[in-house]
C-alpha cells in the first residue's frame, strides 16, 4: 500500500456514501440476505429433520456465506460503472481510497449478512455451538478475506461483457485458503473439539496478504 497517496478521509467519504446508497437502494443488500435465507431454508427443508455431523454443517454454512456474498458484492463497482458515476469517482478520488472505501463497505455488508444468517442457520439446523468465540473469530477472519478478494474481483469483472456467474468462478479459487480452514475450524467450534491455532493464524496471514495484494494490484487496473 502506498501510504503517501492514501487519503483516509476520501475512503471514509466513499464508505459513507455507499452506506447511504445501500439504504436508499436496497436491491443488492436484500438480494444477499434473501439468498442466504432461501439457501438455508432450501437445504434445511430438503434434508428434513436429519441430523448432521459438524463437518457437513460447517461446510453448508460456508457455502451459503460464499454464494450469498457473491450475490451481494459482485456489483460493488458494476452498479457505479453502469450508472456512469465510477468515472466521476475516479476523477475526484485516489484509487486506493476508492478500493478501501469499497472494501470496508463490503466488509460491513458481509458482517450484516452473517449477523442475519447465523441465528437462522443455527436454529433451522438445530445446531448448538460449543465454542462460540472460535466461531465468531473464524467468521471475522473469513469475511475479511472475502471482502478483500471480493472487492478486487468485483473491480476485475466490471470490464467483462458477459457477467453471469463470472464473479463466484473467479472468487472461489482465490479464497480457498480461507474457505478450507474456515470449514475445519467451524466444525471444531460446533463440536467443541480441539483445533489448530495455526489454521486461524493462516487465515489471518492470508487476509493480510489479500489486502496488500488488492492494494498493489488495484493501481494497475486504471
Amino acid at each position: 500500500m502506498k501510504l503517501s497517496n492514501f487519503r483516509f478521509e476520501q475512503a471514509a467519504a466513499i464508505f459513507r456514501k455507499d452506506f447511504l446508497l445501500g439504504l436508499r437502494r436496497r436491491a443488492a443488500f436484500a438480494a444477499m440476505l434473501m439468498f442466504s435465507l432461501t439457501a438455508t431454508a432450501n437445504l434445511s427443508l430438503s434434508i428434513g429433520g436429519a441430523i448432521f455431523d459438524e463437518n457437513l454443517l460447517a461446510a453448508l454454512l460456508w457455502v451459503v456465506i460464499f454464494f450469498a456474498a457473491s450475490a451481494g458484492i459482485s456489483g460493488t463497482f458494476e452498479t457505479e460503472a453502469a450508472a456512469g458515476t465510477l468515472a466521476t469517482l475516479k476523477l475526484y478520488a485516489e484509487p486506493q481510497a476508492i478500493l478501501f472505501g469499497k472494501m470496508f463497505f463490503t466488509l460491513a455488508s458481509l458482517a450484516a449478512l452473517t449477523v442475519f444468517l447465523l441465528p437462522i442457520f443455527l436454529i433451522l439446523f438445530d445446531c448448538t455451538v460449543a465454542q462460540i468465540w472460535l466461531l465468531l473469530a473464524v467468521i471475522f477472519f473469513g469475511i475479511i478475506g472475502l471482502a478483500a478478494a471480493g472487492t478486487l474481483i468485483a473491480a476485475l469483472t466490471t470490464s467483462a461483457s458477459v457477467k453471469g456467474g463470472l464473479f463466484p468462478i473467479l472468487l472461489f479459487p482465490i479464497t480457498l485458503p480461507i474457505f478450507l480452514p474456515a470449514i475445519q475450524l467451524t466444525a471444531a467450534a460446533i463440536s467443541g473439539a480441539d483445533f489448530e491455532t495455526e489454521l486461524l493464524m493462516t487465515m489471518a496471514i492470508f487476509d493480510a496478504i489479500l489486502i496488500t495484494a488488492a492494494s498493489i494490484l488495484f493501481d494497475y487496473l486504471d
Binding site: 476485475l156 473467479l170 479459487p173 482465490i174 496478504i209 495484494a213 488488492a214 494490484l217
Partner: peptide, 12 residues
Amino acid sequence: VSAVYSLLSVLT
C-alpha cells in the same frame, strides 16, 4: 484484468 487475476491466484 487477466494479468491481475493471474498474479492474485499465484498467491494462493
